[in-house]
Design a protein around this nucleic acid. Sequence first.
DNA 1: TTGCTCCTGGCACTGGGTGCCACTAGCCTC
DNA 2: GAGGCTAGTGGCACCCAGTGCCAGGAGCAA
Lengths: 194, 194
Amino acid sequence: MTQTATGEDARSRVERAALELFTSRGFDAVTADEVAETAGISRRTFFRYYPTKADAVWGDFAAHVGRLERLLRAADGARPVLATICAAYAEVNGYGDADLPVLRQRMRLILTEPALQAHSQLRYAEIDRVVAEHVARCTAEDPAALLPRLVAASTRAAATSAFAAWLADERTDLGDQLRRAFDELAGGFPSLPG
Amino acid sequence: MTQTATGEDARSRVERAALELFTSRGFDAVTADEVAETAGISRRTFFRYYPTKADAVWGDFAAHVGRLERLLRAADGARPVLATICAAYAEVNGYGDADLPVLRQRMRLILTEPALQAHSQLRYAEIDRVVAEHVARCTAEDPAALLPRLVAASTRAAATSAFAAWLADERTDLGDQLRRAFDELAGGFPSLPG
DNA sequence: TTGCTCCTGGCACTGGGTGCCACTAGCCTC
DNA sequence: GAGGCTAGTGGCACCCAGTGCCAGGAGCAA
């Protein structure tokens, strides 16, 4: 029940400390002890909040996946599958302007730090499962069949590419990049020569 | 210079031991010491052959990437980009029947063991870089732009989905799955309803 | 033989992650 | 208010991946 004067709870304090330290000194150069100490808790408690050092940058990712799943289940069945998935991704990643700096910080870490890049695959797998199940419902197939897997993996590829392009150019809008990527995917890459 | 009676060199012995042990007991339950001991070398030497425990299952992956890069550079510029990439993937993954069991074992580990799944992202990034550079050459764009990234990430998604589907059903042919996945991608997912 | 280089193994150390236990704060019940 | 329950916390010890350092030994050249 201990809280700081700011009223921020321990979990958020850990996340903020992790983002700040990893950004300024690099993921590998910061020990879990340092993050814990900065957040004002013990190393042991740190690993109770987040099962690995890498998880500290992801915030409440389970809620993220949960929202995506609910959106897909509630989606209009008459709409094209890719359009549904694109809309769900855009909705789930529709941050307000105030949250964009933190999102940038988080995504920059995830996309550039090798250890976090590796770890991200485990988080993405949860998203892929949810999307593949949605496609399987739409096509009356096994979620493990080629098409559901492929749609899940390539729409996620679209999302991460959009994030990367958005990070690379400060002036662009994340939603625009997402839609551009999904348009290329749905249209069989019209911008490609040949 | 020490060799066993079989004439197999130490590096291959390590790889075989790793695949065998990881398959039978799981990646996390096997220590690097055990792999080293089974291969007849010290733990210290193990980490000179392979920088991480996970790398031991990948064999000579740098050569793999090198071959892919050479194929893409030598490709017919008039051909559609996706067709070129598909052909290069198929060529690089064109194993003889004798090698298929080991390939299956390797891919099953990489796609099912969480630690290896995470690690794979680092290896895939090398492939993505090569493919993105190829696309950038074809479109006169920056490799970091949205389209090159997207094509690289989604063709890799196609390849891994094909691998997964091939693993799930023993009777299918890897090349067929690859072509099916790329056809869906190039055609804007014609098999999808809507 | 001496000297050089390369490969190897042993040793000690850092750091992530975990199991176990003891302590404390709150809270409920009698 | 006393006793007992539970949840959160921290400390400690341990395992294991990975690394730097150094000492040996094999092979080769002069």
